[in-house]
């Protein structure tokens, strides 16, 4: 195999464009997945059936259909009746939404793991619903949810190249386009290394956080 550093050098400008897209998708997608997942998890515990039921149906549906289909739907179908968004925005929303249905399960398990006695003590002290969640339940659930949430961040990173299919060129999308145009392969290898360079410190960070939270 011939390795040509000149090819790598030529790829760099587009590589950095791709890295920026990947990191944006990962960062904002993670925020959406973490926040929305919590909303789903809490709504699934609602005493109101008309809140609980649609949310359960929706999250089950999203979790059991491919991310690729959801990206196509958001990009090609939604604009027919709703907003039309840039490929990157669509991709970020798609990733965030898809993974929010997984983080919802993580939160659900974390919340279920808080002993019933904690809810009872909160009731006995007449704490409000909001205060019970914020001061009692969620702080105890968080230490149970950080490790699995971290794993989903890494999973999302690995799924992020899918947004290239709707035209949001992440680093792999850029590499593929570059390689096709120049009949070279170096760019793909560079991106492979870049994934490790992003994912490995991320897992280390998660593990460090885990050690701090789970005593």
């Amino acid at each position: 195999m011939n390795w040509d550093w000149q090819v790598v050098d030529d790829f760099m400008p587009r590589f950095w464009d791709g890295v920026l897209v990947t990191l944006q998708a990962l960062a904002i997608g993670t925020l959406i997945a973490f926040a929305l997942g919590l909303v789903w998890a809490m709504a699934q515990r609602s005493t109101l059936v008309w809140v609980r039921w649609p949310v359960i149906a929706f999250t089950e549906f999203i979790r059991n259909t491919p991310l690729l289909v959801q990206l196509f739907f958001l990009f090609y179908v939604v604009p027919n009746f709703g907003p039309s968004m840039s490929p990157l925005t669509t991709g970020i929303i798609g990733l965030g939404l898809h993974y929010s249905t997984y983080t919802a399960e993580v939160y659900r398990a974390g919340i279920d793991g808080v002993p019933a006695g904690q809810w009872e003590a909160a009731t006995a002290l007449s704490l409000s619903k909001g205060r019970t969640w914020r001061a009692v339940i969620l702080p105890q659930a968080i230490r149970r949810v950080v490790p699995p949430l971290g794993n989903y961040v890494v999973a999302m990173l690995k799924d992020s190249p899918m947004i290239a299919t709707i035209g949001a060129f992440d680093m792999l999308g850029e590499a593929q386009a570059f390689s096709n145009e120049t009949f070279t392969t170096e760019a793909i290898t560079v991106v492979g290394v870049a994934f490790i360079v992003i994912a490995y410190p991320a897992s280390l960070l998660i593990r460090a956080l885990e050690r701090r939270l789970v005593r």
């Binding site: 904690q118 009872e120 003590a121 006995a124 007449s126």
Partner: peptide, 15 residues
């Protein structure tokens, strides 16, 4: 609010 309770398992908030 008139009522307070102490439980068998204490149920203090560990956080």
């Amino acid at each position: 609010k008139n009522i307070g309770m102490v439980f068998q398992q204490f149920n203090l908030f560990p956080n």
